[in-house]
Nucleic acid binder design. Structure first.
Lengths: 216, 216
DNA sequence: TTATGTGAACGCATTCACAGCC
DNA sequence: GGCTGTGAATGCGTTCACATAA
């Protein structure tokens, strides 16, 4: 098989996808510093893993390197962007015009990576109509009628835990099939809807566990 | 072996710790609704896993249930809080008085879970001295001299990517051995320092991958 | 010689299945 | 009878080791 094969044949592990994202960020940095070529060994060191792991991760998607030489930084960057679906723009709508939404919108490289926040919704009558950078906060009741014409790809849940499931139901009913959930609860959705939950409480509790159980 | 054993004998998988945190959140909700007893099966359904998984997760730390009956919600809550190191208060200092720091400080249940933000630092002369809820933003240069007397347990990195490694070095030099990193870069620290990185870009790229590669 | 690509071996997390106790 | 606790079996991600190509 020669380079540029695409489309995973078997299911790809989450851990692999996370590492691919990491490799991409390193490649973009290397690009900036004018490096033309990298080896799996260098990428491994940057990512805290092994060269075999790097090569295996890439091998699921094709052959991108040259034996004896390594990988072209430019080409591998392009391949990874393609693999991760970053070759296109995703339209993101955010429900909940609070702190998390603001942090997201201003997150460095967010738009750059192809995630465009095109709409913001809230239930709070105080917030509806207010400006939010270039966007006007809309009434969440309008979400179902907006979703199709505006072509939202991803819905972000940035509301308190109690409201999260209701928002998820609304997103699903509006035809949105990919959800990023920042509320600290599990949400239930149909099998064909993709959900990822980022739960800061879990992260801190993991740190707490490590602290409490470390060898003194 | 009877109930209340403690201290993991073997290394515990990250995935296990995450699930324990999840179970705890369910238990707290059950507590609120006055439920006295749960089975591993109920916890499994809430967490999207299997009853065997729940029992196995708990078994690493002891025997907490009654055969034929299930688990006392109250007792298991207490045990999990203990296991996760949430029985005590952790003193947290945040470096970077930006959006993420604000989101953190106002995150529901953050203080409740035992994480107390006791200091905030920044390099920006504009921000130093300003009020940040009950706290005054301090000059990051003061961090090393504050760390020991104020007893910081955890340092939070909430600065841009470029500044993250420098802050990490400063935290380590100040004697802080547990770091929560919100900057979208890997940071290097000595082996005895615990680091957890929360990288929102990675989460979104994972969603993008799932979207791009899902069966149409 | 150097570094990739990959089948095979390995180790660990998950699942199974059932003995043990309420 | 119901549900826990756990050794054993399974499955899967990681690591190894080497054939392959520049």
């Amino acid at each position: 098989m020669n380079s540029q094969a695409r489309g995973p044949v078997k299911r790809i592990a989450d851990s692999t996808v996370r590492r691919l994202s990491l490799y991409l960020s390193f490649l973009e940095e290397l690009n900036g510093s004018g490096t033309a070529t990298v080896s799996s060994d260098v990428l491994a060191r940057l990512g805290g893993t092994t060269s075999a792991q790097v090569r295996k991760d890439l091998s699921f998607f094709g052959s991108f390197g040259k034996r004896g030489l390594g990988y072209s930084v430019l080409e591998l960057t392009a391949s990874l962007r393609d693999i991760l679906g970053l070759g296109r723009q995703w339209k993101v709508c955010v429900v909940g015009a609070g702190k998390i939404g603001v942090a997201l919108a201003r997150y460095p490289g967010f738009t750059y990576k192809g995630f465009n926040i095109v709409a913001v919704y809230d239930t709070d009558i105080q917030k509806i109509g207010s400006q939010w950078d270039a966007l006007t906060v809309r009434d969440v009741a309008r979400l179902p009628e907006d979703a199709i014409p505006e072509g939202f790809d991803i819905g972000v849940i940035a509301v308190p835990a109690e409201a999260a499931q209701g928002v998820a139901d609304l997103l699903v009913a509006s035809g949105i099939t990919a959800i990023m959930n920042f509320a600290p609860v599990q949400i239930a959705v149909p099998a064909d809807v993709i959900v990822r939950t980022v739960n800061m409480a879990l992260e801190f509790e993991g740190l707490s566990f490590a602290l409490a159980n470390r060898a003194k």
